[in-house]
Amino acid sequence: MSLGFFYIAAAFVIFGGLGVVLTRNIIYAAFALLISMVGIAGIFLLAFAEFLALVQLLIYGGAVVIVVLFALMLTRIEDFRNLSDNKQWPLAGVIALCLFAVLAASAIFSPVPTFDREGVGISELGETLFTYWAVPFEVASLVLLVALIGAVVLVRRSDHNEEVQEEGQE
């Protein structure tokens, strides 16, 4: 029964991922990413990681896909309905297939001892996160702050320095 649900969620993940890497329309790729992320949230639920499933939906389904769509809107990629791939895409496919063969074979032929599926409760997760991992947690908040400031500084339409440069080019 649960295996059926797993296959449904895995189909979401895999077909979403295929959509991201294969589709010709870049907007469809963004929505395929959304489908894939929803599938991953389902996988997390099947592993009894309900908090992570919620976070996955909120962060990826909500924030990341929207940010990517904004990036697509702001960059106006040349003929976005008909993207082409690199010249080396067959080589990329071979590399990806080989990597998959190696990874899957190593997972299949060296099984690790497993036990029954067992989840981690939200309270347990919070306790660990805020006692054992409190310092890394705070550092992560610092990383987010730095990324925020860095992003603002990078995209700010800047001072006359650049205008002079542009005029010089003209």
Binding site: G17, V21, D85, N86, G93, F100, L103
Partner: peptide, 24 residues
């Protein structure tokens, strides 16, 4: 879980190597 994760990872590798657009 392991096989699904490796399949998704390889899809990502293919996308990084074969796509042209930086957003993709």
């Amino acid at each position: 879980f392991q096989v699904l994760a490796s399949a998704l990872f390889c899809l990502g590798v293919y996308g990084v190597l074969a796509r042209k657009s930086a957003v993709l």
